[in-house]
Simulated scan of single mutants.
Amino acid sequence: MLDDILLDDPAALQRADRQHALLALAGAGARVRTAVRLAEEAGLASLRPEGRPRTVLVAGHGSVLTAASVLAALAVTGCQVLPLAPTEVAPAEHGSFASGLGWQLPGWLGPLDLLVIGSDTGRERGLVQLAQQAYTRGCAIVVVAPPHTALSEAALQVRALPLPYAPSAAEPAESQDDEPDLPAEDPGALWAHLAPLAALAARIGVAPIGEGALAAVADRLDEVAVRCRPDAAAYLNPAKGLAAQLSGTVPLVWAEGAVPAAAAERFAAMLADRAGLPALPGRLTQALTAHRGMFVGHLGAGADPDDFFRDRVDEPEPLQLQVVLMRHAPGRSEDADPGFAVNRARRLAAAHDVRLTEFTSTLEEPLEAFAELAGPADFAAVYLGLAR
């Protein structure tokens, strides 16, 4: 159940936010600038590539894989960008589950390909082994990790380009997890991984990212932080408003286009991690058929509408669906005709009395549009978790 009073009490929100998630999100813009600066100082600015790679593999877990999905949405047609998730786990060191994760390179990876490895701790033994495997295959390697860690030292041994990971400026979070070996991820880690990855992609021609795109992303995240700040009233704060709408619902996060699809996946992951709320992401038009059955079931109609005289005083509020539709319409007004798939989604929701909330970015730059869509959604997930 959502605590509406807490949402409009900045001091109470600060006390509840013992993991400093709101501070981490508020500093996302500064973190992008720091990550770009660190990457340039580490040698990215002097990099002289001889053509772009055939395939870019991005290995890691959590936000690293989300950053890979964003880059895949931006990549040129002549180059594939693929996330490489862990496939196995061994007994962990120091009680950390992530340190025991393992990755496997695909058999076709070779000298024409690039492997990017990302980690916010640099302690994953499996990523160190992955770098060594890629070196024996003759792959180009880039490593994003904190300095003076096992992974950053391994990067030097395999002649990789080491790019420092930009840490959060927020104070270390208090540990309050029931699963200490599976701690919640820093919500701002996405931007610390995405910024150097996007800068690298622009440098080697993998994605058409403009020269000032990352600076614009940082400015956009600053703007989002102002609009979604804790002392902004709920009726003026889009993140608090969305959090209130999602309470007591099963969210369906639909996306029109590749960039909104990455934002939808990010939102679903944040809702699970920060609010303990399961959400189903999907991309139009496939989501219309994949999720159709949920509209005709009890989630679409709520409680039994036929038994009008049943005593409902002691019954909990029934769960209902809530559709969140994310769109990218560059150069068009939000009132322009969105096309058949979006109109069909609106009709489906209206026909079954399901609330549909739309977030549309009309920005031309896809990376900035992702920030405009994902930024408020990140805040909404954190607010929902705190207010529940």
Results as ranks from 00 to 15, higher is better:
residue 9 D to N: 15
residue 12 A to Y: 04
residue 15 R to E: 09
residue 17 D to I: 02
residue 25 L to N: 02
residue 26 A to N: 11
residue 28 A to Y: 00
residue 29 G to A: 06
residue 33 R to A: 11
residue 34 T to L: 08
residue 36 V to A: 06
residue 39 A to L: 01
residue 39 A to T: 02
residue 40 E to V: 01
residue 44 L to T: 03
residue 51 G to C: 06
residue 55 T to Q: 08
residue 57 L to H: 01
residue 64 V to L: 03
residue 67 A to C: 04
residue 68 A to K: 06
residue 71 L to V: 06
residue 71 L to A: 05
residue 76 V to G: 14
residue 77 T to I: 03
residue 78 G to W: 14
residue 81 V to C: 07
residue 83 P to Q: 09
residue 86 P to G: 08
residue 92 A to P: 15
residue 95 G to K: 11
residue 96 S to C: 07
residue 97 F to Q: 10
residue 99 S to H: 12
residue 107 G to H: 12
residue 108 W to L: 14
residue 110 G to R: 13
residue 114 L to S: 07
residue 114 L to D: 05
residue 118 G to P: 02
residue 119 S to M: 02
residue 119 S to A: 03
residue 120 D to A: 12
residue 125 R to P: 00
residue 128 V to E: 05
residue 148 H to M: 04
residue 149 T to W: 09
residue 150 A to V: 02
residue 151 L to D: 01
residue 153 E to K: 02
residue 157 Q to L: 11
residue 160 A to P: 01
residue 161 L to F: 03
residue 163 L to R: 08
residue 167 P to G: 07
residue 172 P to D: 15
residue 172 P to V: 15
residue 173 A to G: 15
residue 174 E to C: 14
residue 175 S to C: 12
residue 178 D to I: 10
residue 179 E to L: 15
residue 181 D to S: 15
residue 181 D to W: 15
residue 183 P to N: 12
residue 185 E to C: 07
residue 187 P to V: 04
residue 191 W to Y: 15
residue 196 P to V: 13
residue 198 A to E: 07
residue 199 A to K: 07
residue 201 A to F: 09
residue 203 R to F: 06
residue 205 G to T: 10
residue 206 V to R: 01
residue 207 A to G: 05
residue 209 I to G: 05
residue 211 E to T: 14
residue 212 G to D: 14
residue 218 A to V: 09
residue 220 R to T: 11
residue 225 A to W: 07
residue 226 V to L: 11
residue 227 R to K: 13
residue 229 R to N: 10
residue 230 P to M: 06
residue 232 A to N: 07
residue 237 N to E: 06
residue 238 P to M: 14
residue 239 A to T: 11
residue 239 A to H: 11
residue 240 K to L: 05
residue 243 A to E: 11
residue 248 G to K: 04
residue 248 G to L: 05
residue 248 G to E: 07
residue 250 V to R: 08
residue 254 W to I: 03
residue 254 W to K: 02
residue 255 A to W: 10
residue 260 P to G: 05
residue 260 P to V: 04
residue 261 A to S: 12
residue 262 A to L: 06
residue 262 A to Q: 06
residue 267 F to S: 03
residue 271 L to G: 03
residue 273 D to G: 08
residue 274 R to G: 00
residue 276 G to F: 10
residue 280 L to N: 03
residue 285 T to I: 10
residue 285 T to P: 14
residue 287 A to N: 03
residue 290 A to L: 14
residue 291 H to I: 04
residue 299 L to T: 09
residue 300 G to Q: 08
residue 302 G to Q: 11
residue 304 D to V: 04
residue 305 P to N: 13
residue 308 F to C: 02
residue 312 R to K: 13
residue 328 H to S: 02
residue 331 G to S: 07
residue 332 R to F: 06
residue 332 R to W: 04
residue 334 E to R: 13
residue 338 P to T: 11
residue 343 N to G: 13
residue 344 R to D: 14
residue 345 A to D: 08
residue 345 A to C: 13
residue 350 A to T: 09
residue 350 A to H: 14
residue 352 H to Y: 15
residue 360 T to L: 13
residue 368 E to Y: 00
residue 369 A to N: 04
residue 386 L to G: 01
residue 388 R to D: 01
